[in-house]
Design a binder for these strands. Structure first.
Lengths: 186, 186
DNA sequence: GTGCACATGTAATGTGTTACATGATTAT
DNA sequence: ATAATCATGTAACACATTACATGTGCAC
């Protein structure tokens, strides 16, 4: 059992919303806020074939017996196994490691929660996120204050400050989002 | 002439601050806010050898004639060519592409400005950064408002909001940092 | 009928990851 | 003595990037 890349989960999540072709997926990556993921054919198509090989997605035209023309549009859809894998990934616990190093994957998981897991899971996710993030920010802030006292206008210190302020923005987003979600649950 | 990775520039910048060994550099990546960069030997040592091959860094012990024991501590220092390459990279114009897709590289360049380029360059950098970032956020915000009006509590929309709020935090950081730097210039 | 967007794919290349290997030095 | 840390390195592997290749369908 090999590991699954964030790109692969990104594709799974999009296919969960709607069965579509590799080209459609590329367009989404190229034109929406998911720009972060590469829209190059050299990344998308091989990733789709890996998912197909694992049985997580399937080509709808597969049923037909005649040899498939590789130049024809192929529409992919999530299989049951694929949905199971996606939901399992979404529900994984929030670790410090992810908060520190794999931010993008965390946000993607949260973005894909709607329609796949109950809202209470999203609330729980945010609570864990807040806890881990707050702990990490506190650590960084200690380092930062020490640096700032020595070199108040050093660009390195300013860059550091930017990172911290971004994390604090995330923290306050998480708190407000959780409050709003919690309201809608009750 | 091949491209230079962000990791390679990160190493150059650290060596600019202080001549040191690969192990020292790994420690920095492992323990400071530069965690983002891998501290694995499989990334650092090959990167150092690439930089050495390009003549951007040099082993201080190179002068000695006897065959070098590969298990001995090697202290690397920036060469003049390396400093030139670093300064050229730092001074590159801020492009929309970098703002949208290569955030980390941008912040690294800014962090390394102190001591390598005049403060006026840092101010200019921030001004360009603000312009490109503001334009991009405005685009995203248009998409976002449309989504929000349809699905106010969708986790995908909330995740999108988090991204926008982070960018806005960066924007206000840039404005405040620029004001402070501008004061110190005059 | 020429050009463009659609649509899928392959090949070469380079880099990061993981795991392993080696030996020196320091602390207990 | 022995364990941990210092210190550098290699090898296998997978993935993303870039560039290229191929062909369809539509608009003008």
């Amino acid at each position: 059992m090999q590991t699954t890349t964030t790109l692969e989960y990104a594709l799974l999540g999009l296919l969960r919303q709607k069965a579509q072709s590799g080209y459609d997926l590329r367009k989404t990556f190229a034109t929406t806020a998911m720009r972060h993921y590469s829209d190059s054919p050299g990344s998308i198509y091989p990733a789709l074939r890996r998912l197909e090989a694992r049985g997580w997605i399937a080509d709808r035209g597969e049923a037909s017996t005649e040899p498939r023309d590789p130049r024809k549009r192929r529409i992919f859809a999530l299989t049951e196994a694929g949905l199971k894998a996606l939901v399992a990934w979404i529900g994984e616990p929030v670790t410090r490691d992810e908060v520190v190093l794999r931010e993008a994957a965390l946000m993607l998981r949260f973005a894909y929660m709607d329609g796949n897991v109950p809202r209470s899971v999203a609330c729980r996710f945010l609570a864990d996120f807040e806890r881990e993030k707050a702990a990490y920010v506190a650590e960084l802030r200690a380092q930062f204050e020490e640096m700032r006292s020595k070199f108040p206008l050093h660009t390195g210190v300013l860059a550091f400050q930017s990172g911290i302020e971004q994390m604090e923005a995330q923290l306050s987003w998480a708190r407000s989002a959780r409050a709003r979600l919690a309201e809608s649950v009750s």
